[in-house]
Design a protein around this nucleic acid. Structure first.
Lengths: 141, 141
DNA sequence: ACAGGGTCAAACAGATGTGTTTGAGATAAG
DNA sequence: CTTATCTCAAACACATCTGTTTGACCCTGT
């Protein structure tokens, strides 16, 4: 039982996460804390959302803080996306850490859920680090 | 100009982070957004806090989700801390990924700011993964 | 069919966080 | 000294988030 302050989780959320992590059921935790199982469920869900938000926040920050960053609008073809990554990098004299097919595969993996027939379903943010790493940030996962 | 929703940052905070990242001064950003430089400063600070919270959240989660986890109270000596890491790991049949001096150095580095004359200044949470990695979480940095 | 473990949605009071203004410093450079 | 850049604190209206309750619902075994 312990730390929470100065994170995005509340004490209650951490408390429940810990008890649940020890293998207790929601009902057991509920009895122990004197509340209902559906309440535990709700708090657990809230905690998961906060954790996910934290993950996405760091991802966004990494993107925004990249030396190069630009957005590619919804509807753009995958080919044009890959091409624009290279042109932006060239323009700044940075060498992409991947060869073209590698980058293609990499982006396809990351953006799997945001593409439809080789077209972006959402507008995305792209960041390129000095080391030639390519970072992507999307609204929806 | 872009993504923010479903992170711990607000749109305004991202907006300002982006403009600032482009090298603009707080005053320039303030003029552009029609507000004052001290307001920009405040929002920037709030954003930094949120980012820090996000970082700490993920760290906490990694600790809590470790198969073994326990807390070591303030005032405990460094030697006892190292010893208890080993005994907890042994108890669960996990082999720590570091030899004793390595672990000592590792923990000393991480906990530098929380120790005073080989004693913990704060209560800390320790997590040990199945791979024998040792994670530490503290209230203060 | 039933029970056990879990989820979801709506509602509500109370807490926490937001951007903003105003005014007062801090620090470094010219 | 002045100026530019940035920080800090207090206060305020407004917005979002919190834990809770209640009641319904979904799987998966038995």
């Amino acid at each position: 039982m312990t730390s929470a302050e100065s994170t995005t989780l509340t004490e209650r959320q951490v408390e429940i996460l810990e008890l649940r992590e020890q293998g207790q059921t929601q009902q057991e935790v509920a009895d122990r804390l004197g509340t209902t199982d559906s309440n535990i469920s709700a708090i657990e869900r809230a905690a998961e959302q906060n954790i996910e938000k934290a993950r996405r926040t760091l991802e966004l920050v990494r993107t925004v803080r990249s030396p190069i960053q630009f957005s590619v609008s919804s509807g753009t073809s995958f080919d044009k996306l890959v091409a624009s990554v290279y042109s932006h990098a060239d323009e700044a004299g940075i060498k992409i850490a991947y060869c073209r097919p590698e980058l293609y595969t990499h982006l396809y993996g990351v953006l799997e859920e945001c593409t439809n027939q080789n077209e972006l379903k959402t507008t995305i943010d792209v960041g390129i680090t000095n080391e030639g790493e390519v970072r992507v940030f999307t609204e929806d996962f």
